[in-house]
């Protein structure tokens, strides 16, 4: 008993010696590489390790780099379409698979929708490479649709999760009350369910957008020639001599991700 006291701190069952130290070190380790990456994006020199003064020149260079411009627009375009379609499909599926007695096939629907989460990305990527190669040969079409379709598919489970969570926490008696007050099923959906579900739908969209924006593996396998997205462009670049331009692009992408994730959290917590 006295052994606990003489440490100079009041006894607490919540304190385990050493844990706080490891935790703080972990946080430091987690953020140090990102911090360094961001700092050197402002480096005036060519190096990613030797500081030569503050400058925005790498941002300017990235901004004026046509390949970067093109990849950025493609990334944003694919993410917008894929996240929108995925959110729509996920919303419908979430409405169908919540708040009902389990029916035959419901578990199957649920498992299928979450399937992209359970299979390693590289396996899905290979599968899509093979499948789309067949279609490309058969149709001769090699456009962007393959990439959009692949992104939509793996975005669906991410969009589905927050929407489903919100539907499940929604009070069933609200929809009953609307029906009781002469609202047809469609009006009940439009005036009560949809407005209450909206933050969940937006959260789902944000998540899907970020996931699409960040994807490397599937994009790398599915893209046709000249269909670089920002991440695959960067993957190609880092094989060569690294300049702080990569850091600048990374920093911009990080910032976009943080903004979307923060919005996602704000929306998920909204009542």
């Amino acid at each position: 008993m006295s052994g606990w006291r003489n440490r100079g701190q009041p006894f607490s069952s919540r304190r385990i010696p050493g844990f706080a130290g490891i935790a703080l070190a972990t946080f430091a380790l987690l953020y140090a590489p990102i911090a360094i990456l961001v700092i050197y994006s402002f480096n005036a020199g060519l190096s990613i390790a030797i500081w030569e003064g503050f400058s925005l020149k790498w941002y300017v260079q990235a901004w004026n780099n046509e390949a970067v411009q093109e990849a950025t627009l493609r990334s944003l375009g694919v993410a917008s379409v894929a996240a929108t379609v995925a959110t729509l499909a996920a919303t419908m599926a979430a409405l169908a698979t919540t708040r009902t007695r389990p029916f035959r096939g419901m578990t199957a629907i649920y498992t299928l929708i979450n399937q992209p989460l359970m299979v390693p990305e590289i396996v899905t990527a290979v599968a899509l490479l093979i499948f789309f190669a067949i279609i490309k040969v058969a149709t001769g079409y090699t456009g962007i649709v393959y990439l959009v379709a692949a992104h939509t598919a793996f975005c669906i489970p991410f969009a589905y999760l927050p929407i489903r969570a919100r539907l499940e926490s929604m009070d069933l008696s609200l929809e009953r009350a609307a029906a009781d007050l002469y609202a047809t099923p469609w009006m009940t959906f439009r005036r009560v369910t949809l407005p209450l579900l909206w933050p969940g739908i937006m959260a789902g969209f944000m998540l899907a957008f970020v996931i699409s924006l960040d994807d490397v593996v599937i994009t790398e396998f599915v893209k046709s020639a000249g269909q670089e997205t920002l991440p695959t462009y960067m993957l190609g670049q880092i094989r060569r001599v690294m300049t702080p331009e990569v850091n600048a692009i990374s920093t911009a992408l990080l910032l976009a991700g943080v903004v979307f994730v923060t919005l996602f959290f704000a929306l998920s917590r909204k009542r």
């Binding site: 009070d171 008696s173 609200l174 009953r176 009350a177 609307a178 009781d180 007050l181 009560v192 407005p195 209450l196 009542r271």
Partner: peptide, 12 residues
């Protein structure tokens, strides 16, 4: 029409 035990007022 029904008055619900939980009131079921539309929160929005």
């Amino acid at each position: 029409n029904t008055v619900f035990q939980s009131y079921a007022l539309f929160p929005h």
